[in-house]
């Protein structure tokens, strides 16, 4: 059976939205200005704002595509996409079933979760030391 699409149904998406798209873009503009001014980073939770069907996509479309895309694999994939406005990132967290569990606009030079975390680096160092100990220095240093 062919997959049904909204456009195939006799339903029109309303032409009156929540009017939250433009204010949100202004909020991002203010946040970017502040990042440049004093380095303060901002995170906006897109799921906390009432949006009509199609408005979330409209925000993403307005922000466009930038130069960087990254994927984090921890408790399911997370996508980090820099928009056409450098410093403005769209961050989407998925679970193991690839369902979205959070969607944010992060205004920062680099999203916090892309940085290596101190705890993970410490654990990694211990692991590397143990591996080298097990090898008994056979790697010839």
């Amino acid at each position: 059976m062919a997959e049904s699409r909204l456009a195939d149904l006799d339903i029109e998406v309303g032409d009156i939205g929540t009017h939250n798209v433009i204010p949100l873009l202004h909020e991002i503009r203010h946040a970017l200005a502040q990042l440049l001014e004093d380095g303060k980073e901002t995170v906006i939770d897109l799921r906390s704002i009432p949006l009509a069907p199609g408005e979330e996509a409209a925000i993403e479309q307005a922000l466009g595509e930038g130069e960087v895309q990254a994927v984090l694999s921890a408790l399911g994939p997370s996508n980090f996409r820099e928009t056409s406005y450098p410093g403005v990132w769209v961050v989407t967290h998925h679970n193991h079933d690839d369902k979205i569990v959070g969607k944010f606009v992060e205004v920062a030079s680099i999203p916090a979760l892309l940085r290596s975390q101190t705890e993970d680096m410490s654990a990694g160092l211990r692991r590397l030391e143990e591996t080298l100990m097990e090898d008994g220095g056979s790697r010839g240093d």
């Binding site: 984090l72 921890a74 408790l75 997370s78 959070g102 916090a112 979760l113 975390q117």
Partner: peptide
């Protein structure tokens, strides 16, 4: 679960 995973949660 890594620190990143925990912070994502």
């Amino acid at each position: 679960i890594s620190r990143r995973g925990f912070l994502k949660f």
